[in-house]
Design a binder for these strands. Structure first.
Lengths: 354, 354
DNA sequence: AAACAAAATGTAATCGATTACACTACCGCA
DNA sequence: TGCGGTAGTGTAATCGATTACATTTTGTTT
């Protein structure tokens, strides 16, 4: 540290007084390295960019200088020059949704392995925020980003600039420009509903999110299974995918004189809300009402009875998305891929045979 | 879109063939705006930087050009010039820890309001990753960052470069360089333990994380309460703060011939693990063994019986940290503040009076 | 109308890297 | 010896903004 400060007197940089003086009284630049090593900045860059022809001897001199100065290349400057950065974006509705929490972590891990960092953005299913963040992705020169758009935004996504690689996750978007990683939601909804029916439930209500395309698809599977068994939907709601709304809606549902014998929820926040409501009504799961949903969470297996659900391979979704993104960053012309993964039915107590 | 493309023919930018051609065939620069508006780049900058003296008439001409070209200033270039960016970092151990999930969201919200974006980093309590990410904070020219360091790293933090504003959260660090936002952990541990004792529990085991400084402090409070009631710790473990370790340790604990009548856990991951173990042993909460912990989670209130815990004001912690950070960004010389917040005891079924 | 101050705008340096292009030095081969 | 080729290195333009300083325009006062 001390030696670094002493070195500063040699720095070529003029300390423009307009810059806050606390800022980088340190931070040697490539020029300083060049000076110390007795070479040109081009050579330093070549050594560090590991692409090029340099004598072993100069390489060593440069590396010594680098070490001596504790030099680190300025990513901003590099990014400005090459019009790219080692950053990817992750734009999702809410990182607190356990599904996205897991995705976020998987993406960060995969990015880390490639030396990339992750810009995290929560859109709250708000198209305005979505637009703002897409613009930010541009402005930050991200190499690409992973995006889970609302229905409304997805529709107009194709009218946006396509110069940045995008991978869409979780939700279908009608564009041929981007890769996608999706769950087979219709099948998942179908399987989950069939499971309920097989276990003797007949009056099945549905709580569906109204923001993404996943809910309608899961609903399609739900309807299909019901129809195949000559059952009618007992009731259904399209509501904001939040615990609060799940609670309110389920509460109203359960306070009717004619109650459903099972509640199908299209995501884990609604599941949590519904469970709160069931508890609030002092009803028993599954005797009074069964409950099923999506996404494995910390609590899904811990509540009593544990919740039956379709688990999504979150780790795999995150990884796949990141890998597709890197593929596309490498080769932006390769034709878009859609990867569809299968969910896993985890049957537990909340939907036990009646 | 079409008009934008047509405009490209006017761009002053020479399209260096070395850049991938798919990249920014669009993206007008400040020069293009200046040309269209018939002014110099300085004037454009002045209009957009809203700091300066410009005629209303020129302002309008520039704004028209901006709109016409769909111009957005290049943040990278700006960042290079002013040696700062509208980005802050968030460096925590694992975003999947519900505490940090909430913090992350609160920070992102607070940053968003100020027009900042958030770089998210997971360190996994790994000092090497921590160091790497601190360096990244430099390299990305973040305006500052919020950091929850491991014990080991916290110790040497003060030897690091102090040119970037830092706010430490959740964990104590022995430095006078940074602001901190902390919970009164000793009091929290004390209160939680007292609550157990008051409700009739005597053989209280402790499961503590071994990565951060919070666990030892909560343990201090635990010990203090025990001592005041002439109780001895029934057993205690310092383990990695993960569900798996919580499960394993609790399982071993419960399989002993002499079981504790209560388990005190120092964070929600350990709580979840312990609960799994209790379930695995087919024991009843709280009749066979009580369970208490930290951090309100989605599931804490949903399991049966619901978990008694100390809730941290996560929203407030995140907000306060971000605000302190912005204060320090504005005035890097102001002397560091430490904000200590109180947790709230939420007594529920898992520690009911016996 | 002249003189000067104040306001508006332009010119060009700068931030820190990358890289096309130019140049030198040296080698091998005719 | 002379010539072409190649490997190693340096020079300088460039990325897109900001801003000190220079210059021009405008307005005010006598």
């Amino acid at each position: 540290m001390i030696s670094l400060i002493l070195f500063n007197v040699e720095f070529s940089k003029s300390f423009s007084s307009l810059l806050p003086k606390w800022y980088n009284l340190l931070m040697p630049s490539i020029k300083d390295v060049a000076k110390i090593a007795g070479v040109s900045t081009a050579t330093v860059s070549r050594v560090l960019g590991n692409n090029a022809k340099v004598t072993e001897e100069t390489r060593q001199r440069v590396m010594d200088a680098v070490e001596h100065l504790n030099y680190r290349p300025n990513l901003i400057a590099r990014s400005l020059r090459v019009q790219k950065s080692a950053k990817i974006g992750l734009v999702v509705s809410d990182i607190r949704n356990p599904f996205f929490t897991e995705i976020g972590r998987a993406v960060e891990d995969a990015a880390y392995e490639k030396g990339y960092s992750v810009l995290m953005c929560n859109t709250d299913e708000n198209p305005e925020k979505e637009e703002m963040y897409i613009n930010l992705m541009h402005d930050e020169n991200v190499a690409g980003f992973i995006f889970s758009p609302t229905q409304q935004f997805g529709a107009k996504l194709s009218t946006f600039d396509t110069s940045i690689p995008i991978v869409i996750i979780d939700r279908v978007v009608n564009t041929k420009q981007a890769d996608m990683v999706l769950l087979d939601n219709v099948a998942a909804g179908y399987d989950l509903t069939n499971h309920l029916i097989e276990n003797g439930y007949r009056k099945i209500a549905g709580l569906f999110g109204n923001a993404s395309t996943t809910a309608p698809e899961r609903r399609r599977g739900w309807l299909k299974a019901l129809r195949e068994h000559q059952l009618k939907p007992f009731a259904e709601y399209a509501i904001p995918p939040k615990i609060k709304q799940g609670y309110d809606t389920a509460l109203a549902l359960l306070n009717q004189s004619d109650r459903p014998d099972a509640i199908f929820t299209s995501n884990s926040l609604l599941t949590a809300g519904a469970l709160q409501a069931i508890r609030g009504c002092k009803l028993k799961v599954p005797d009074d009402v069964a409950l099923v949903g999506f996404d494995e969470t910390t609590w899904g297996a811990l509540v009593d009875p544990p919740i039956s659900l379709i688990a999504q391979p979150t780790e795999e979704i995150g990884r796949t998305a990141t890998e597709l993104l890197f593929q596309r960053i490498k080769d932006p012309t390769r034709s878009p891929k859609t990867v569809i993964l299968k969910g896993t039915l985890i049957a537990r107590g909340s939907s036990a045979k009646r």
